[in-house]
Write a protein that binds this DNA or RNA. Structure first.
Length: 809
RNA sequence: GCUGAUGUGGCGAAAUUGGUAUACGCACAGCACUCAAAAUGCUGCGGGAAACCAUGUGGGUUCGAGUCCCACCAUCAGCACCA
């Protein structure tokens, strides 16, 4: 009888749905809880991508195993449904995003169910549901109340395609992360969130959580902490001074000029003293036309203009040094001004070379054998440097010199120790319709006032015209009757904020809502938060490391600070899956025509085969190209499993000839699941099946264990087969198989014998044989005799149970 | 340039963490079943006649290295004038 996966899969999916098999237990009695989380999808019109199930299947396997291990498991799902595609679709086709979103969610839900994930569907959340975004808005108001949300007019990244402001994190290579249009700088009043206030904690607390090393490294890199000093350089014959930031205060004696960013306000302040103001202004204008990206692109050639009429005074040498304007100094980092030490900084070196500026060596290599050539390149080595020509720090290694200079600067009040971060505050406004309205009102008298919390949610009004206005205002700006309101503070006429929140808002806390999704009084109850926090395991894409993952950690820390959540960090463990590429090894895209539709795969091979294949493709954390031949192989494997029932021997125990294999397999599969080594777990299953086929028999006990182990991978087929042998329970209700360590050890072991480290032969011995006996056996061996003949044995090494090596001369 | 990975058969990949390199799968070939094909089952499958040689390249440590150390090369991802 052949396997009808369509019928079987439908049968079990319906049963799970009807019985709510995988719903998390509502009571909090079981102290063993496990909360597994996958990134909830954006319900795009294209439907599910084959990449989604890679992550979902992995955690589904772990979740199913954890349930069998006796845990109360929460494995929820929802939809991150605000965002531009639905809005752009609405602009084109005049269909309300609400409708598109609902249709897409229905499609996604069906697709996800067809894959047999053990999600708790009773907790499904949807970020566009007013009952949900009520709490997103509530969190925003709390941020505002604590001074962490503020309005600022500042140059922002503006996407010329989407016509919205973007956060730094959303700009990739100078173009919009979403639509690929060029990004320009634009002055705009925006809501900002002070993520920078949490920069240090976002670094420090990484030490206490189990994130993949590359994720931690990427987050640290993005936050970009650097330690240094701010130093005050007086401007000669004025009361003004230039504050610079440096990580190398030890090189201050080698500062031969200063550089300020074109936007630096000192230029305006000292305009009357500058003798070449026209030239400076021209340079400023030229720089303003370039985006940050273009500036960085023009990496090779540095440009700049000297400010005539002004000199800075080196506070340690008293030397008067020139001041230059150049766009290699960024106004957005540090103080927008630097001291240039061309002998010990690559960029300063390039600039000094180009403009013929003087260089002064103040650091030399400790290691005399290191040759440096300051004509060719700067000497920047921190580990190997010693100060010279530097007065009171002469002879000190760089690190000590830095400490000494800072001490001096602070004692003389000309500078302070300072930590800087690359991380910037989060631009939180979007001039778009399909997002959470920002619950703020502007009153002429009172300024910005949050709307009263009891009025939440502030619902998004229904509109007809989704087109953003040409001046870049949100479509909501045209909804006059919605905008006009009363000031909650003084009662006078006031206007609503028309910007909406970015897509990252709803996803910054959704995992909390899953804990108590229908709560009308709080975002989640204290009990639920206490019980389920933190998330035990969160798997998602690397592309979210500096966006979603950082943002949600920030919000969570804030919620911790105001006493809403019980843990500092939301996620105890974070892992990441590799991308699935098309059959040609390229990223799947419509234009390349290499998109694999999960529906087609389920239709042709069934969900179980699909799941097994995605887990068998290769190491979970690495990219893998789709292969139609390989998925067929996985289908063949499941067919062989299906046909095992013809070889069943009626015996509840393991057969003697299979006992070792069974115990080893339980151990291997259990460990592999915990370590996400799904591919080798499946290889173990295949080896077992090959063994059963070879012997043409397996006991009922072996069969049951095998089905239990395979169940998290191929849940439908295994449940069906389990039911067929007359089991009253489903596999999901049975405990995970256990193994006996003693029974995983072979009685007879094969020992490889090497001569001079090269394998010559092997002998088989009982596992506990004494070393003397083994030695005797080795020397009786024919191959060994031949190889040691006429040679002197220098040494013999026996590593217990592993190897025997004879060294001869 | 910086950070983090990766490099093993024709292909996807394993290797108990320093101890028999190539498990498992795909592709391929042969055999069985069949009138035939498909499906299925079984067998073989790094190179070499062999000694031996093979884990990106070149060194090193070790009785022994895919695994550790040093120096390179290539590919991928992220960041990038961050002072």
């Amino acid at each position: 009888m052949s396997y009808n996966f369509k019928e079987v899969e439908k049968k079990w999916q319906d049963k799970w749905d009807k019985e709510g098999t995988f719903q998390a237990k509502q009571d909090f009695k079981n102290p063993k809880k496990w909360y597994g989380l996958i990134e909830f999808p954006y319900p795009s019109g294209q439907g599910l991508h084959v990449g989604h199930p890679r992550s979902y299947t992995a955690l589904d396997i772990i979740a199913r195993k954890k349930r069998m291990d006796g845990y109360n498991v929460l494995y929820p799902i929802g939809f991150d449904a605000f965002g531009l595609p639905a809005e752009n679709y609405a602009i084109k086709n005049h269909v309300h995003p609400k409708i598109t979103t609902e249709n897409n969610i229905n499609h996604f839900r069906e697709q996800l169910k067809s894959l047999g994930f053990s999600f708790d569907w009773s907790r499904e959340v949807n970020t566009t549901d007013p009952d949900y975004y009520k709490w997103t808005q509530w969190i925003f108001i709390q941020l505002y109340k604590k001074g962490l949300a503020y309005k600022a007019t500042m140059p922002i990244n503006f996407c010329t395609g989407c016509k919205v402001g973007l956060a730094n994190e959303e700009v990739v290579n100078g173009v919009c992360e979403r639509c690929g249009s060029p990004v320009v700088q634009k002055e705009k009043s925006q809501w900002m969130l002070k993520i920078t206030e949490y920069a240090q904690r976002l670094i420090d607390d990484l030490d206490d959580i189990d994130f993949l090393e590359k994720i931690k490294a990427q987050q640290k890199n993005w936050i970009g902490r650097s330690e240094g000093a701010e130093v005050n350089f007086k401007i000669d014959s004025t009361d003004d001074s230039l504050i610079i930031y440096t990580t190398r205060p030890d090189t201050i004696f080698g500062a031969t000029y200063m550089v300020i960013a074109p936007e630096h306000k000192m230029i305006e302040k000292q305009a009357d003293k500058i003798t070449n103001l026209a030239e400076i202004k021209a340079y400023q204008e030229k720089a303003a036309l370039k985006s940050d990206f273009e500036r960085a692109e023009l990496n090779k050639e540095k440009t700049g203009v000297e400010i005539q009429g002004l000199k800075a005074v080196n506070p340690l040498t008293g030397e008067k040094i020139p001041i230059w304007v150049s766009d290699y100094v960024l106004i957005t980092y540090g103080t927008g001004a630097i001291m240039a030490v061309p002998a010990h900084d690559d960029r300063d070196f390039a600039f000094a070379k180009k403009f013929g500026l003087p260089m002064k060596q103040v650091i030399e290599p400790k290691n005399a054998s290191v040759k440096i050539d300051l004509e060719k390149e700067a000497f920047t080595d921190v580990e190997d440097g010693v100060a010279v020509n530097s007065d009171f720090i002469d002879g000190l290694p760089v690190k000590e010199a830095i400490a000494k200079v800072i001490e001096y600067l602070e004692a003389n009040k000309i500078g302070t120790k300072k930590v800087n971060y690359k991380l910037r505050d989060w631009v939180f406004s979007r001039q778009r319709y399909w997002g959470e309205p920002i619950p703020m009102v502007y009153c002429e008298t009172c300024g910005w006032v949050p709307i009263p919390e009891e009025e939440l949610p502030l619902k998004l009004p229904d509109i007809e015209d989704y087109e953003p206005s040409e001046n870049g205002e949100s479509p909501l700006a045209k909804q006059l009757d919605w905008i006009q309101t009363k000031c909650p503070h003084c009662g006078k006429k006031a206007m609503r904020e028309t910007d909406t929140m970015p897509q990252w808002a709803g996803s910054s806390w959704y995992f909390l809502r899953y804990m108590d999704p229908h709560n009308e009084k709080e975002l989640a109850s204290k009990e639920a938060l206490e019980y389920w926090s933190p998330i035990d395991w969160y798997n998602g894409g690397m592309e979210h490391t500096t966006l979603h993952l950082l943002y949600s950690r920030f919000w969570h820390k804030f919620l911790y600070d105001i006493g809403v959540v019980p843990t500092k960090e939301p996620y105890q463990k974070r892992t990441s899956h590799g991308m699935i590429l098309g059959t040609n090894g390229e990223k799947m895209s419509k234009s390349k025509g290499n998109v694999i539709n999960p529906d087609d795969i389920v239709e042709e091979f069934g969900a179980d085969t699909f799941r097994v294949y995605e887990m068998f493709m290769g190491p979970f954390d690495q990219v893998a190209a789709w292969s139609m031949e390989s998925i067929r192989g996985c289908g063949k494997f499941l067919d062989r499993v299906w046909n095992l029932k013809d070889m069943l021997v009626d015996d509840e125990n393991y057969l003697p000839e299979h006992e070792k294999m069974m115990h080893k397999a339980i151990k291997k599969v259990s460990n592999d699941i915990e370590e996400m080594k799904f591919n080798t777990a499946i290889a173990t299953f295949m080896t077992m099946v090959n063994e059963f086929y070879k012997d043409k028999k397996l006991s009922k006990g072996e069969y049951k264990t095998f089905l239990q182990l395979l169940n998290p991978f191929a849940p439908h087929m295994t449940e069906e087969l389990f039911e067929e042998i007359g089991e009253s329970k489903t596999i999901a209700q049975t405990p995970w198989p256990t193994y006996d360590e003693a029974k995983t050890i072979d009685d007879q072991i094969e020992i490889p014998i090497q001569i001079n480290g090269k394998l010559k032969t092997t002998i088989t011995i009982p596992k506990d044989l004494a070393e003397e006996e083994i030695r005797k056996k080795v020397h009786e061996n024919e191959v060994v005799c031949k190889n040691v003949e006429n040679k002197t044995i220098v040494k013999e090494i026996y590593v217990n149970g592993k190897i025997y090596n004879i060294v001869v001369k």
